[in-house]
Design a protein around this nucleic acid. Structure first.
Length: 299
DNA sequence: CCTGCCGCCTGCGCGC
DNA sequence: TGCGCGCAGGCGGCAG
């Protein structure tokens, strides 16, 4: 479920626990977590061990650790991936910070563990559904090769809204499908797609190439705004599946207008929010504010 | 090149 | 009670 805001929360959390630290040991506990790595766990461990982390960067839902060798350690959280700080001394501060460090005992979904040369807290990659994973990419510090096809995300300072609008309108597909296409604009997943469509009063099945330039612009602005607000709130989470590096949940789910609100009244007009199956997943929308397009695209 | 479908995974909650 | 099924769903690969 992690989309751009949740991944950014993780990036910021990771920064404090990785930058300037030398990775002393890497343990791959589940080969599927490195399935994108040519040669598997062996080459992964060998390439990463003894490197110092310089930075953590992000594009869309992808993260990459910049190593002092100029290489990159790419990570994607998939559906259920988490980076967690483990085995460190719990700070004496606030009670919530008791969650600061997990018990050093192995978590059932532990996939990869990074241990550092300074003897401080470890960084664990945990992933219940194993759609996530990591990959070492030689020379990938600026932009790892496997991410080259991903579009810039709306929080990127170099994101070009006019260009994004033009790309969206060039696609012969339903607007929601285009929103979820990471090569067009990255970072948007099912939750924020539904929220942006609700805010822009557009039905998910509207043909992208029939929307006006201003309409697409409003939609992308809405997506940007909702993701920025979610980031401020620490991300969206419905359960313990998504948490930050310290195990804490964000609270943006309280601000959602469409996603997960089937049967409940629309915050704008009071009509019951509907849930449709679309693209083998759920789409939540207000049937009054977001009317279905009248005719199928039939040129 | 473009579009859209499938398979990959595990845990939870529901209905019978 | 226990079991099977639907659902959660991002993304790479691939067919057309």
């Amino acid at each position: 479920m992690p989309e751009l805001p949740e991944v950014e929360v993780v990036r910021r959390g990771l920064l404090a626990f990785t930058v300037g630290r030398r990775i002393a040991r890497v343990e791959v506990r589940h080969d599927r977590a490195v399935r994108r790595q040519p040669g598997g766990a062996g080459p992964f461990v060998a390439a990463v061990a003894d490197r110092t982390v310089l930075d953590i960067r992000r594009r869309g839902k992808y993260l990459w650790w910049v190593l002092d060798s100029g290489d990159a350690l790419v990570a994607h959280l998939g559906m259920s991936g988490q980076f967690r700080i483990t085995g460190g001394p719990a700070p004496a501060a606030d009670p919530p910070a008791a969650q600061f460090a997990q018990d050093p005992a192995d978590h059932p979904h532990l996939r990869i563990r990074f241990t550092f040369g300074d003897g401080g807290p470890a960084v664990d990659f945990q992933d219940q559904r194993t759609f996530g994973g990591m990959q070492f990419v030689p020379g990938g510090a600026e932009l790892p090769g496997p991410l080259a096809h991903i579009g810039r995300d709306p929080l990127d300072p170099q994101f070009d809204p006019d260009r994004a609008v033009a790309t969206v309108r060039s696609r012969r597909s339903d607007i929601k499908r285009v929103l979820l296409d990471q090569t067009v604009v990255s970072g948007i997943g099912n939750i924020y797609a539904d929220e942006a469509l609700w805010a822009a009063r557009l039905h998910y099945a509207r043909p992208a190439d029939r929307l006006t330039r201003p309409a697409v612009r409003r939609l992308l602005d809405a997506a940007t705004a909702v993701m920025a607000e979610a980031l401020d709130a620490g991300g969206t989470s419905f359960d313990s599946l998504y948490v930050n590096v310290n195990g804490e949940s964000g609270y943006f789910d309280r601000s959602l207008h469409a996603y997960g609100r089937g049967g409940r009244p629309c915050d704008r007009c009071g009509t019951a929010i509907r849930r449709d199956a679309f693209m083998n997943r759920s789409s939540f929308f207000c049937p009054r504010c977001q009317p279905r397009p009248r005719s199928r695209p039939s040129d």
